[in-house]
Design a protein around this nucleic acid. Sequence first.
DNA 1: GCCAACGTTGGC
DNA 2: GCCAACGTTGGC
Length: 136
Amino acid sequence: MKSWLVKTEPETYAFEDLVQKGEDVWDGVRNFQARNFLEKMNLGDQVFVYHSGKQREVVGLAEVSEEAFPDPTAKEDGNWVAVKLKPLEPLPTPVSLKAIKAEPSLSDILLVKQSRLSVMPLDKKAAEKILKMSRV
DNA sequence: GCCAACGTTGGC
DNA sequence: GCCAACGTTGGC
Protein backbone atom coordinates (compact mmCIF):
# COMPACT_ATOMS: atom_id res chain seq x y z
CA MET A 1 0.00 0.00 0.00
CA LYS A 2 1.26 3.44 -0.93
CA SER A 3 0.59 6.71 0.82
CA TRP A 4 -0.34 10.03 -0.74
CA LEU A 5 -1.21 13.54 0.28
CA VAL A 6 -3.77 15.67 -1.52
CA LYS A 7 -4.42 19.34 -0.98
CA THR A 8 -7.69 21.18 -1.05
CA GLU A 9 -8.97 24.59 -0.13
CA PRO A 10 -11.50 23.96 2.64
CA GLU A 11 -13.65 26.87 1.41
CA THR A 12 -14.05 25.05 -1.88
CA TYR A 13 -14.07 21.42 -0.81
CA ALA A 14 -13.25 20.39 2.74
CA PHE A 15 -12.52 16.99 4.21
CA GLU A 16 -15.87 17.30 5.97
CA ASP A 17 -17.59 17.45 2.59
CA LEU A 18 -15.97 14.16 1.69
CA VAL A 19 -17.11 12.66 4.99
CA GLN A 20 -20.62 13.83 4.36
CA LYS A 21 -20.71 12.26 0.92
CA GLY A 22 -19.25 8.95 2.05
CA GLU A 23 -17.28 8.69 -1.20
CA ASP A 24 -16.53 11.22 -3.88
CA VAL A 25 -14.70 11.94 -7.10
CA TRP A 26 -11.41 13.81 -6.58
CA ASP A 27 -11.28 15.82 -9.77
CA GLY A 28 -10.16 19.16 -11.17
CA VAL A 29 -6.44 18.43 -11.11
CA ARG A 30 -4.84 20.38 -13.98
CA ASN A 31 -1.16 19.91 -13.37
CA PHE A 32 0.88 17.30 -15.17
CA GLN A 33 2.97 16.28 -12.23
CA ALA A 34 -0.09 15.92 -10.01
CA ARG A 35 -1.90 14.01 -12.72
CA ASN A 36 0.95 11.56 -13.04
CA PHE A 37 0.74 10.84 -9.33
CA LEU A 38 -3.04 10.39 -9.52
CA GLU A 39 -2.52 7.77 -12.18
CA LYS A 40 -0.25 5.79 -9.90
CA MET A 41 -2.78 5.51 -7.09
CA ASN A 42 -4.04 2.02 -6.39
CA LEU A 43 -7.18 0.77 -4.78
CA GLY A 44 -6.88 0.93 -1.00
CA ASP A 45 -3.93 3.34 -0.94
CA GLN A 46 -3.82 5.68 2.02
CA VAL A 47 -4.53 9.34 1.30
CA PHE A 48 -3.89 12.20 3.69
CA VAL A 49 -6.08 15.24 3.12
CA TYR A 50 -4.49 18.64 3.69
CA HIS A 51 -6.31 21.95 3.97
CA SER A 52 -4.45 24.83 2.35
CA GLY A 53 -5.10 28.52 2.85
CA LYS A 54 -5.97 29.66 6.33
CA GLN A 55 -5.85 26.28 8.05
CA ARG A 56 -2.70 24.75 6.67
CA GLU A 57 -2.94 21.37 8.33
CA VAL A 58 -3.45 17.72 7.53
CA VAL A 59 -6.97 17.04 8.72
CA GLY A 60 -8.07 13.61 7.64
CA LEU A 61 -7.40 10.19 6.23
CA ALA A 62 -9.04 8.62 3.22
CA GLU A 63 -8.44 5.70 0.91
CA VAL A 64 -8.55 5.26 -2.83
CA SER A 65 -11.87 3.61 -3.71
CA GLU A 66 -11.51 3.82 -7.48
CA GLU A 67 -8.35 4.10 -9.55
CA ALA A 68 -7.73 6.79 -12.14
CA PHE A 69 -10.36 7.35 -14.82
CA PRO A 70 -10.89 10.27 -17.22
CA ASP A 71 -11.82 13.41 -15.30
CA PRO A 72 -15.50 14.06 -16.07
CA THR A 73 -15.00 17.79 -15.45
CA ALA A 74 -12.21 18.15 -18.02
CA LYS A 75 -13.20 20.06 -21.14
CA GLU A 76 -9.67 20.79 -22.27
CA ASP A 77 -6.99 18.54 -23.70
CA GLY A 78 -4.46 16.81 -21.53
CA ASN A 79 -5.85 13.39 -20.61
CA TRP A 80 -6.81 14.63 -17.18
CA VAL A 81 -7.83 12.01 -14.67
CA ALA A 82 -9.71 11.76 -11.40
CA VAL A 83 -9.90 9.10 -8.69
CA LYS A 84 -12.52 8.27 -6.12
CA LEU A 85 -11.78 8.71 -2.45
CA LYS A 86 -13.52 7.27 0.56
CA PRO A 87 -13.01 9.01 3.92
CA LEU A 88 -11.69 6.86 6.75
CA GLU A 89 -11.40 9.19 9.72
CA PRO A 90 -10.57 12.75 10.70
CA LEU A 91 -7.17 12.89 12.40
CA PRO A 92 -7.53 13.00 16.20
CA THR A 93 -5.23 16.02 16.18
CA PRO A 94 -4.69 17.85 12.89
CA VAL A 95 -1.02 18.05 11.92
CA SER A 96 -0.11 21.61 11.03
CA LEU A 97 2.31 22.67 8.35
CA LYS A 98 4.23 24.40 11.08
CA ALA A 99 4.63 21.15 13.00
CA ILE A 100 5.66 19.35 9.84
CA LYS A 101 8.29 21.98 9.07
CA ALA A 102 9.56 21.75 12.64
CA GLU A 103 10.09 18.02 12.24
CA PRO A 104 13.51 17.30 10.74
CA SER A 105 12.51 13.89 9.39
CA LEU A 106 9.76 15.56 7.35
CA SER A 107 11.85 18.40 6.01
CA ASP A 108 12.20 16.90 2.56
CA ILE A 109 8.64 15.91 1.78
CA LEU A 110 7.11 17.53 -1.28
CA LEU A 111 4.54 19.40 0.79
CA VAL A 112 7.41 21.46 2.15
CA LYS A 113 9.68 21.43 -0.89
CA GLN A 114 7.14 22.07 -3.59
CA SER A 115 4.36 23.96 -1.93
CA ARG A 116 2.23 24.39 -5.02
CA LEU A 117 1.90 20.71 -5.89
CA SER A 118 -1.60 19.43 -5.09
CA VAL A 119 -1.11 15.67 -5.27
CA MET A 120 2.04 14.04 -3.96
CA PRO A 121 3.41 10.73 -2.74
CA LEU A 122 4.51 10.22 0.86
CA ASP A 123 7.05 7.57 1.69
CA LYS A 124 6.25 5.07 4.40
CA LYS A 125 8.32 6.80 7.04
CA ALA A 126 6.76 10.19 6.43
CA ALA A 127 3.25 8.72 6.45
CA GLU A 128 3.89 6.93 9.74
CA LYS A 129 5.40 10.03 11.25
CA ILE A 130 2.43 12.19 10.39
CA LEU A 131 0.07 9.56 11.76
CA LYS A 132 2.06 9.46 14.96
CA MET A 133 1.98 13.24 15.27
CA SER A 134 -1.79 13.18 14.88
CA ARG A 135 -2.22 10.91 17.86
CA VAL A 136 -0.52 13.04 20.46
C1' DG B 1 13.60 27.38 -28.96
C1' DC B 2 14.37 31.23 -25.80
C1' DC B 3 12.76 34.50 -22.67
C1' DA B 4 9.92 38.22 -20.80
C1' DA B 5 5.34 39.08 -19.20
C1' DC B 6 1.63 37.62 -16.89
C1' DG B 7 -1.50 34.64 -14.00
C1' DT B 8 -2.17 31.46 -10.16
C1' DT B 9 -1.21 29.18 -5.93
C1' DG B 10 -0.19 29.22 -1.34
C1' DG B 11 2.68 30.60 2.68
C1' DC B 12 3.70 34.38 5.57
C1' DG C 1 -1.61 42.47 1.28
C1' DC C 2 2.78 40.91 -0.25
C1' DC C 3 5.89 37.92 -2.33
C1' DA C 4 8.13 33.59 -3.98
C1' DA C 5 7.59 29.67 -6.83
C1' DC C 6 5.93 27.84 -10.69
C1' DG C 7 3.25 27.33 -15.02
C1' DT C 8 1.62 29.29 -19.31
C1' DT C 9 1.53 32.38 -23.12
C1' DG C 10 3.19 35.06 -26.82
C1' DG C 11 6.72 37.75 -29.30
C1' DC C 12 10.87 37.26 -31.57
